[in-house]
Amino acid sequence: MQVVQQPYPNWHPSPPVDQVGVEERVARLAARSIKKESKVAALKLALSMIDLTTLEGSDSPGKVRQLCYKAKHLHDALPDLPHVAAVCVYPTLVRVAREELAGSGIKVAAVATAFPSGQADRETKIRDTRYAIDEGAEEIDMVISRGAFLRGEYGYVYDEIAEIKSLCGDAVHLKVILETGELGTLDRVRQASDLALAAGADFIKTSTGKIQPAATLPVTLVMLEAIRDFHLRTGQKRGMKPAGGIKTAKTAIQYLVMVNETLGPEWLTPSLFRIGASTLANDILMQLAKETTGVYQCADYFSQA
C-alpha cells in the first residue's frame, strides 16, 4: 500500500462529535438480532479477526508457547474453525512466538514504543520498535504519547507516528493505540484518529487493555467514522482494532454489525478489522459448540488461552 502522509495540523480540523447521537446509534445497532446460520457465520468471522493477546509482566516463553498452541488449536472437537488473525506479545517474546507459529498463517504482533504508557523519549521508542521488527514481528502495536496529545502538541504526536511508520515500511503493519480511556471525550478520540490516520497508521486501535474503560461501542463508532471519512477523502482503506473488555461473543457480534453499517462489508476481513482479546475466543467457541450440540457449554471443557 502506498502510504500518503499528509501534514498535520495544517490540515482540516476534525468535525465535532455528537455524543448523544453516537450513543443513540450504538444502542440501535447493538439491538440487531443475529441468529442461527448468520450467527454461526458471524462467530467464525469474529474468531478469524482475533489478536490473541498476552501482555503481562509475568509472561514467559512457556506462557507464549501455550498461547500459540491455543491459537493453532482453538478447539479441535469443532471442525471447520478458522484460525485467529495474530498473536500479540511483548517484543522480547516475538522470537518464541515466530518459532511456534511458523507455517500456521497466524501473524505475530508486538507492542512497542514503551507500551503501555508511552512515556519514553523518541530514541527509546524507535529502538524498541526496531528491536521488535528485528526479532520478527510482522505487526507493530504502538502507543501514542497521550501526555503530549493532551498538552496540544499534535505535531509531536504526528511526527512520532510518522517516524515509527517509516521504520515499519510497507512490510510491517502498524497499529496505533490511541488509549481512548485517557483521552476523555469523543471529540478528542476523533481528533486523535484523524491525526493517526494522516500520519500513516495502517490500523487505529482503541486501547492497551491496561486502562479502564478500554474498548467501548461509542468510541469504536467514532473511530470507524474517522476511517470512513478518511477513505472518502483519500480512497485508502485503513483498519480498526478495538481491544480490551470485549469478553463475550454477543459483544463481538455487535462490533461486527457496527463495522458493516459504518464501513460496509469490505471491512469485514481480518486485514481491515481486528479484535484484541484473550478470553473472547473461548466464549465464541462455547457459543459455536452450543449451536452444534444444542446445550449450553461450560468453560471447564475448553482449553485456556
Binding site: G294, V295, Y296, Q297, C298, A299, D300, Y301
Partner: peptide
C-alpha cells in the same frame, strides 16, 4: 430441557 442439559 435447557436446565437439565446445561454443561455448566
Amino acid at each position: 430441557p435447557h436446565i437439565a442439559g446445561h454443561m455448566d
